[in-house]
Design a protein around this nucleic acid. Structure first.
Lengths: 225, 225
DNA sequence: CGTTGACAACTGCCCGGCTTTTGTCTAGAT
DNA sequence: ATCTAGACAAAAGCCGGGCAGTTGTCAACG
């Protein structure tokens, strides 16, 4: 029993409700969706919804959070596919994110022209939970894929990526490939530093060899200089 | 004589009006400020205001833009003070920005809890003009300070910095120093690459022996593989 | 040119009254 | 036990209408 029934059932319930909202959001705006609609679409009573989430605001929070998690899942998958080349992983991850975000119902709702900005605060001025959670998860995923990376470095990179991702999702700048390439160019050198051990699988496991991976101090060290 | 009177007068007029708005915004919210108030505070008729800006929305745009320019001025000053050390310039610039943003009336209005988010779209989903303008100016300032930097590289860096700056202004994460340090850690390596020519002559200041600036290709080259 | 005064059009707000929704509670069903 | 159904107060939204304020654009005036 990895997860007791109680919490599994609760998780299933929450997912079903969030799925219902996801479906409704493809047709109507959030402000035109009542909690009753969400409950009914999920085949559940309104009170169960309130039991599971507490309030409409909290539900919106959870929805944004899970939608972020979904995008993150795609991003992590893209990263895992390039474990051997961190820079390529970075570029691929960002490009995948941009593509997924462009056709995501929630993102479209947020960015929709002339629409009432219901969710926008949740990913900007009120976005602490989303950013923190997404960054934490992304950092965990990175330290899992590249164990030799300092966790503090991964967290730094993750938060920066999350913030840039939100920025570009809210306000695309150029093509997805171009953006991903820029991000790779900008953060690639840092990633190279951080993953020095795996990036330089070359001859010497030691440090002061020379050419390919010059005597770079670790990012944390160089940062707090 | 460098600028004909007509345009100088127009510029002065616009500045005066924007200053009036700036002052009014310290007491009231934007939605509670009428164009008449702005005009009157500037000692000018309402029609002159409309002649100068066209519409309330356009005025808000211009206001946000100029406020960004003001912050940018402080940032550029901080950068110019560290022309010899691009990484330090980066950190100092970002820290100055965060400090200035934290006490800026416009930023406070945008971030204010429970307030009607009037300006938020202008720096997020509708922020193309602001981001583009700020990035262009910042890039120009950088290529001026470090002439050997490829302009494309500077533009990349500038846009990234502007987006991160907006993100952190809207949603501060930790202390200003910590944030600036993170940004420096993340983008420092890229900056080092870009400014290789100028970074190299300032030799083994903090780095150990060997080759402080190894055979690094220019960032553009490494970016496009 | 900038100001002034006037203008239609639109928006905002007040009213009272009505409907819907939110959030909670209780009783009842499986 | 937990979910549902039903009811509930409180809050919010929508009406229409009327009134005040604002926006945006005139023409006429210094």
């Amino acid at each position: 029993m990895s997860t007791p029934y109680a919490v599994a059932a609760r998780q299933l319930l929450r997912d079903t409700l969030l799925d219902a909202a996801h479906e409704l959001l493809q047709r109507r705006a959030w402000r035109d969706i009542a909690m009753r609609d969400v409950a009914h679409t999920a085949g559940v009573s309104r009170q169960t919804l309130y039991k599971a989430f507490g309030s409409r605001e909290a539900f919106a929070q959870a929805f944004v959070m899970r939608e972020g998690d979904r995008l993150l899942a795609a991003v992590e998958e893209a990263m895992q596919a390039h474990l051997d080349d961190p820079r390529a992983a970075l570029a691929s991850a960002f490009e995948v994110f941009l593509a997924a975000a462009a056709e995501n119902p929630l993102v479209r709702t947020v960015v929709r022209e002339g629409a009432a900005e219901d969710f926008l605060p949740l990913v900007t001025i009120r976005g602490t939970p989303v950013v923190a959670h997404a960054a934490a998860r992304l950092a965990a995923s990175m330290t899992e894929g590249w164990p030799e990376v300092e966790h503090a470095d991964a967290e730094r990179l993750a938060e920066c990526l999350v913030r840039l991702a939100i920025s570009y999702a809210a306000l695309p700048g150029g093509s997805a490939e171009g953006t991903a390439e820029s991000v790779m160019a900008l953060l690639g050198p840092y990633v190279q530093e951080i993953t020095a051990a795996v990036a330089a699988p070359a001859p010497d496991h030691g440090r002061d060899g020379g050419s390919p991976a010059p005597p770079l101090t670790t990012a944390t060290a160089s940062a707090r200089r």
